[in-house]
């Protein structure tokens, strides 16, 4: 991060700073942001190569290492998805931009109010009249309204795929067994912000009651007009045809199941943030699932409680094993010969 200026930057200065969609860090300028993203979020953990976008990394991992990129590394828990294509400040969903700005504004005025309380000095140029100057501070009701409009817009865009991803994904693959059902409590895991940790004192849950996570813009981003993206010499991250001779080839993480939290890294403050976020979202331990193994089934009872409410389609569901079923087919059956 850049050095803090002496004194207090004004709110517009804060708002104009480059910031990272994936981890909410801010930077002096776009160049620093881009190199941060390459180093922290788009770096191949196999060969160290730094790509320009998550899509580029996904293609790289598929083609060079034959692996699927499942999530963006070092990202906040609800920002790990690959369905949002970010380059620098481009591609950030509008509602996330708004949330970010609101948070900056709130933090700014809160800090100012604290300074004011501590020093007894009114904020410069405001004569004690309160914060509203050029910038309009939205009330929670206004934010709610705007989000509702936004959601309606997104819902209209949504076609058939990917709609439910935000409530489902990131912990799916964590071996500690947290189920989507448990993740789904809004305001906890799905809160669009990391836990306060002293940094974001008031936002968001309190100021946006009833907020639910934004859908992750399936197919809606990047906007068609993004100029001169340096990754454009890379193959398009989506919709690539399979490479010849690679029967297993698939595009970047194709299923929601694959968008998995991979964020537990050692190291710096981003990771700390992530860990805190993860720690906070962990649902209270229920004795029967996450850490302990499952409870014994009762007789023929098959569906666990939490799955009753979900649509679950088992590809194989039988008391006999597939091999026993196959063994019954004439094609495979072994008939014991007399005297054999």
């Amino acid at each position: 991060m850049g050095k803090k200026k002496r004194g207090h930057p004004d709110v517009e200065e804060l708002l104009s700073r480059a910031w990272c969609y994936y981890c909410e860090r801010d930077f002096e300028d776009l160049k620093l942001l881009i190199s941060h993203q390459k180093a922290k979020h788009f770096k191949c953990d196999r060969c160290g190569r730094r790509l320009n976008t998550a899509g580029g990394l996904s293609v790289h991992m598929n083609q060079v290492h034959k692996e699927s990129l499942t999530s963006v590394e070092n990202a906040l828990p609800n920002r790990q998805g690959l369905d949002v294509e970010i380059f620098g400040m481009e591609g950030i969903p509008e509602d996330i931009v708004q949330q970010h700005n609101q948070r900056i504004i709130q933090n700014f005025y809160q800090a100012q109010a604290e300074r004011y309380a501590a020093t007894g000095n009114p904020p410069p140029g405001q004569g004690g009249k309160g914060p509203a100057k050029k910038l309009k501070i939205e009330t929670p009701e206004e934010i709610k309204k705007r989000l509702a409009e936004h959601r309606a817009r997104v819902a209209a865009q949504k076609t058939t795929m990917n709609g439910g991803s935000a409530t489902h994904t990131p912990l799916e693959g964590r071996p500690d067994g947290q189920s989507p059902a448990q993740n789904a409590s809004p305001g906890a895991f799905n809160s669009p912000f990391p836990p306060p940790g002293g940094q974001y004192p008031t936002f968001p849950a309190q100021s946006v009651p009833g907020y639910s996570p934004p859908p992750q813009y399936p197919g809606a981003y990047p906007p068609p007009s993004i100029p001169s993206r340096p990754g454009s010499n890379l193959p398009a991250p989506h919709g690539l045809p399979p490479r010849p001779g690679q029967p297993g080839w698939q595009g970047s993480a194709s299923t929601i199941d694959e968008l998995v939290s991979g964020a537990a890294q050692e190291g710096d403050e981003i990771d700390q943030l992530i860990r805190m976020a993860e720690a906070r979202i962990k649902p209270p331990k229920k004795p029967e699932t996450p850490t302990g193994a499952e409870p014994p089934a009762e007789g023929g009872e098959k569906k666990s409680k939490k799955e009753k409410d979900k649509n679950v389609k088992m590809i194989y569901d039988d008391e006999l094993s597939p091999e026993e079923r196959m063994a019954q087919m004439p094609r495979y059956a072994f008939v014991v010969e007399a005297g054999a």
Binding site: T160, G163, G164, S165, H168, E172, G173, G177, T255, A293
Partner: peptide
């Protein structure tokens, strides 16, 4: 025994209208 655990995997979610 308290350390044992189980987790879901090899699943795909298909959202349907």
């Amino acid at each position: 025994q308290a350390r044992k655990y189980a987790f879901k995997c090899h699943r795909t979610a298909h959202p349907q209208p």
